[in-house]
């Protein structure tokens, strides 16, 4: 297993007293706690800090840790031969677990010493994983393959890493950041304790056309100036296929045209809406004929979209 320097993780000396260890942990935990920190590396960092603190705050575990000797962080090592016996009769199965699991095993070994035939029930651990799905999967429901590597106790109370694979059915109605609970799919319970649960955090792949807000979808709808001015019927792609959308005459840029119930389905059998946001797009290259027509429009029109500038400036001057 790989060595981790718990003193270095907390930034304390090897002879630091418990108060210094507690203080260092608190400072780092406030900074990196995943429920508080926005640091993307925060979760990994916090786990390291918490593992270090769990071991060093307990005098017995700290002594056991010190007995492992000093190695370079990341260096492969094995605990000394009598180490497990010396420290609370903790059984461990060596190579396929990591340092924090070794110490977790040590505490359960000690706490439940003589558990052969004992009745102490330990519930399995809960886990949380992120499932990345497409917008179409969210709309129709999907089945995702999940592979987890979880620490598990065998019948001798030894800790192993076990691969668990299963399919999870995600019912329709998902959206970004929504959670699902899969009962009993977390870590195995020990001694008849209930299995832990698995929590799925849904993350939607970005879509080329739609942007998601809750169960509503937003789509950019480019229109020509004449479509916007005269009104038009345009084809708009939706999750359920294309539909015809009536653009009223005099539509302006930024206007939201709502297509009711064309968004993502909700778990409660309702649907979100689809909003088409109008953009007015002009051709970057004009043909001779287009140029002539625009020129004619320019000469013939009295429309002034900036008429309010002068009026507003006059009002400002009067009130200030």
């Amino acid at each position: 297993m790989k060595y981790k320097d718990y003193y270095q993780v907390l930034g304390v000396e090897r002879d630091a007293d418990i108060d210094a260890i507690k203080k260092a942990y608190r400072r780092l935990a406030h900074k990196y706690h995943p429920d508080v920190s926005k640091d993307p590396a925060g979760e990994e960092k916090f786990k390291e800090i918490a593992d270090a603190y769990q071991t060093l705050k307990d005098p017995e575990k700290r002594a056991a840790y010190d007995q492992l000797g000093r190695h370079r962080p990341g260096q492969e090592f094995r605990p000394p031969p009598d180490w497990g016996k010396q420290f609370g009769d903790a059984p461990f199965s060596s190579d396929d677990i990591d340092l924090s699991e070794l110490f977790a095993g040590l505490s359960s070994g000690r706490r439940h010493a003589g558990r052969q035939g004992g009745t102490f029930k330990m519930p399995g651990q809960d886990y949380e994983v992120t499932a990345h799905i497409s917008l179409d999967d969210a709309a129709r429901g999907a089945t995702v393959d999940l592979n987890l590597t979880v620490p598990e106790y065998d019948e001798h109370g030894r800790l192993h890493r076990v691969e668990r694979s299963f399919k999870a059915r995600i019912p329709k109605g998902a959206t970004d950041g929504q959670r699902l609970r899969l009962r009993g799919k977390g870590g195995k319970g020990f001694n008849g304790g209930p299995d832990g649960d698995l929590y799925l955090n849904i993350a939607l792949h970005p879509h080329a056309l739609y942007r998601v807000s809750g169960h509503d979808l937003y789509l950019d709808l480019p229109l020509t100036p004449w479509e916007a001015a005269l009104g038009a019927v345009v084809e708009v792609p939706t999750l359920g296929g294309s539909v015809h959308l009536k653009v009223p005459p005099g539509t302006h840029a930024g206007q939201k045209l709502r297509l009711a119930r064309r968004g993502l389905p909700k778990p409660s059998a309702e649907e979100g809406d689809l909003f088409a946001i109008v953009q007015i797009v002009v051709p970057t290259v004009l043909s001779e004929r287009e140029r002539a027509l625009f020129k004619e429009l320019s000469d013939g029109s009295t429309f002034n979209p900036r008429g309010h500038f002068e009026q507003e400036m006059r009002n400002e001057a009067r009130t200030s």
Partner: peptide, 25 residues
């Protein structure tokens, strides 16, 4: 053949008891 697990939404439409909330949290 993989075992298939059904999932429950954690949204306002699924209610949980006091004891369940204590166990989950």
């Amino acid at each position: 053949k993989l075992e298939q697990a059904d999932a429950v939404w954690l949204d306002a439409n699924h209610e949980f008891s006091f004891a369940e909330l204590a166990r989950f949290s």
